[in-house]
């Protein structure tokens, strides 16, 4: 065994700052992905054929191709097509939001379908308009059903976010690699990065449990 963490110590703050970058990245992707995923799921269960078709095709493409390919396409294609350089961070966020929306829309669709039909009928019989019914009656119940699956998707997102290091965004992963390269010692910084990811995932898992318990108060 030839581990030397002493050499790593000066670089630890540099790597840890990546937590902030990763968290920002995941949070923004997550919120955008969730909103877009909700819209897609409403397309999927809606009556308008063209929107249904679009949402299904969209999901199929994003689930059927590698994430890293999607990211490189977006990173290189957007500047090439529009002339606007959006930077690694934005390209990463865009990719992750678009990609996770595909998965999230499937989760939400299943969750909506699992809500008792009687809920929709009761709301309709009371004259509640479709939009209000969806937002206030169906989605809150669907959300409760899907929270575990959603949390899983968020955890996946946190871990997978490490691939933005490929296009040079300075997240935890990228920072660990940079420190490794400058010290000629990769094992220690990667180990630290691994520990940080693990703790992040554990925190998300815990937050999910707390939320589930809160939502369960009506049972």
């Amino acid at each position: 065994m030839n581990l030397d963490f002493a050499q790593l110590v000066p670089s630890i703050p540099y790597i840890l700052y990546g937590i902030w970058v990763t968290l920002q990245f995941v949070a923004v992707s997550l919120v955008l992905g969730f909103i877009w995923g909700t819209v897609l799921s409403l397309f999927k269960i809606g009556k308008i054929k063209i929107l249904r078709w679009f949402a299904d095709a969209y999901t199929s493409v994003f689930r059927g191709t590698p994430l890293i390919l999607q990211m490189l396409l977006i990173y290189y294609a957007v500047p090439q097509l529009t002339g606007v350089d959006i930077g690694a961070f934005s390209a990463g966020v865009l990719t992750f939001a678009l990609n996770s929306a595909a998965y999230i829309s499937e989760i939400i669709r299943a969750g909506i379908n699992a809500v008792d039909k009687g809920q929709k009928e009761a709301a309709m019989a009371l004259g509640v308009p479709y939009r209000t019914m969806m937002l206030k009656i169906i989605l809150p119940q669907a959300f409760k059903n899907i929270l575990p699956a959603l949390m899983n998707e968020f955890i996946t997102l946190t871990k997978e976010s490490a691939i933005v290091s490929v296009i040079g965004a300075l997240d935890i992963m990228r920072r660990a690699q940079i420190v490794g390269a400058s010290n000629y010692r990769f094992f220690e910084p990667l180990l630290l990065a691994g520990l940080v990811y693990y703790l992040l995932v554990m925190m998300l898992t815990l937050a999910g449990r707390v939320m589930e318990r809160r939502l369960a108060k009506s049972d």
Partner: peptide
């Protein structure tokens, strides 16, 4: 026209009071 169902179909995530006030407020 009001309707009452065999299986009640109350909104489980709302309290009794919220169940009753929901439609008057929203509609």
């Amino acid at each position: 026209i009001g309707m009452v169902f065999q299986h009640f179909n109350l909104f489980p995530h709302l309290t009794v009071l919220e169940n009753v006030t929901f439609a008057p407020q929203q509609v």
